[in-house]
Amino acid sequence: MQSRFTTGWAFWLSAVAAAAALGGTPLHGETLTIPGTGACEPIVAELAEAFNRANPVDRVSVPASTGSGGGIAAVLKGETPLARVARPLKAAEEHEGLVRLPFARDVVVFVVGKGVKVRSLSVPQLAAIFSGKITDWQGVGGAPGPIRVVTREAGDSSLIVIQDRLEPFRTLSFSPQAKVLLYDRITVETLDKYKNSIGFVTHSSLRWSRGGLSPIALDGIAPTRENFRSGRYPLEEHYAFVTRETPGPLAERFLAFVYSPAGRGIIEQRGMIALERR
């Protein structure tokens, strides 16, 4: 009896020791990493920079894009308390107990390279261009020249918005000639590089452009600030943080900053609409 008792103790003791040896989380200091989508990477980076300036002790870092999915996976794995996303949560992700906190509203705009004179396209025209049915700008009333279609990988948040809002894109398969790019910045740079290009990017990422990219009016609705605010322009994209129920003290403070007047000011300054915390 007594030996069983002692063995039990030995077992639990060793189990506790093993748990302490294996399960101990290393102390990183007060650093918050916010991985996720490239769509809102610039604005989150700017917010983080402002936050870091105001709080020199703490450090919020915004790594390169791993996509909304990558960010969510990181939160689910417990690698970080906060991720940046540009798409709604999937049902499975909601079941995992994740919370989505939208903080800014951006829009997806179709842009054309500097050699393209076309400024407005209908949705079917766009669909025909992106599927490769129309390969020359002459086909949509522009100057002759091959249309260089730049698109994004499946799962990209801007593409999801488009597929969600523009019916023909839901079933559309992209032209084999189209370049499939992975990052917002490279997309902007590539659109810049090829003068006959067309592509879609978030409005806020246009700041990477060296100039010469022109937004296209969608069915005559120009992507102006007024149309964003009014909601007439349909391709709006919500940037949000994804977290668990309790994000932790530093994440909570960063969120408080994002929703503060200072944070909202930064968001608005970048041509986005700052959202209230809900």
Binding site: A64, S65, T66, G69, A73, E153, Y183
Partner: peptide, 14 residues
């Protein structure tokens, strides 16, 4: 190759 992993490295950029 594991096609899924190839796709995943595109989609998750990981």
């Amino acid at each position: 190759l594991d096609e899924e992993l190839v796709k995943s490295s595109f989609l998750d950029k990981k």
